[in-house]
C-alpha cells in the first residue's frame, strides 16, 4: 500500500476514466497504467494480479478496480474506486433511458433482427477473448467441446467454469 495516493484521487481518476469507456471498453486500464503503474505508485505485478484474478471471478471484469483501489489506499481506496465507476454508470443509464423512451417505434423495427445481431456480437466477444490467448490445437478442441456442451447439451455455464477451474487446478498441481 502506498501513502502517495488518496481516496479522492482514486475516485476522480475512475470518474475521469469514464470518458474513455464509451463503447463498453475498460478505459480505466490505460489511465491506471499511466498515472500509477508507470510512476511507480502501483507495482506492475499487483496491477496484473488484480486483472488476472477477475478471470476467475464472476460478474463484470471491472471488479479488478477494487483490487487496484485496495493496493493504493486500503479498503477506503477500494470503496472510492467502486464509487468512481458507479457514478458515471448511473448517470449514463439515466441519459440513455431518457432516449429509450422516444425510441419505441425504432425498437419495433429492430425486433426481427435483434437476436441475430446479438449472436454476431457474442461471437465477436468470443473472438476478442480467444485472440490474446494464442490457443494451442488441443485448447481449440477444448473450446469446441465447451461450445457444443452449451449449444446442444444445454449445460449450465457455471458448471463448465467450475469444471475448468478444477481441471486447471489439477494441471497446476501436476505441472508444479
Amino acid at each position: 500500500m502506498t501513502d502517495d495516493v488518496g481516496v479522492v484521487e482514486i475516485f476522480l481518476l475512475m470518474l475521469f476514466s469514464a470518458l474513455f469507456s464509451f463503447g463498453g471498453g475498460s478505459g480505466q486500464i490505460p489511465l491506471i497504467q499511466g498515472r500509477w503503474v508507470e510512476t511507480g505508485k502501483l507495482p506492475p505485478e499487483l496491477f496484473s494480479f488484480s486483472l488476472a484474478i477477475t478471470y476467475l471471478a464472476p460478474g463484470p471484469r471491472a471488479g479488478f478496480l477494487a483490487g487496484v483501489g485496495y493496493y493504493l489506499a486500503g479498503l477506503p481506496g477500494a470503496g472510492a474506486a467502486m464509487l468512481g465507476i458507479l457514478v458515471p454508470t448511473v448517470l449514463g443509464a439515466g441519459a440513455v433511458n431518457a432516449a429509450l423512451g422516444r425510441m419505441q417505434r425504432i425498437l419495433r423495427r429492430l425486433k426481427p433482427s435483434s437476436g441475430f445481431v446479438i449472436a454476431g456480437l457474442i461471437a465477436a466477444a468470443a473472438w476478442g477473448t480467444a485472440r490474446p490467448l494464442d490457443l494451442l490445437p488441443v485448447e481449440m478442441l477444448a473450446v469446441a467441446a465447451v461450445a457444443v456442451a452449451v449449444a446442444w447439451r444445454d449445460v449450465e455455464p457455471l458448471k463448465l467454469v467450475l469444471a475448468a477451474l478444477s481441471l486447471g487446478l489439477l494441471w497446476s498441481l501436476v505441472a508444479g
Binding site: Y55, I122, A123, A125, A126, T129, A130, L133, L135, E139, A142, V143, A144, A145, V146, A147, V148, A149, V150, A151, P157, L160, V161, A163, A164
Partner: peptide, 10 residues
C-alpha cells in the same frame, strides 16, 4: 478457454 467456448456456444 471455458469462457471462449461458452461465448461461441451462446
Amino acid at each position: 478457454i471455458a469462457i471462449v467456448g461458452i461465448l461461441f456456444g451462446n
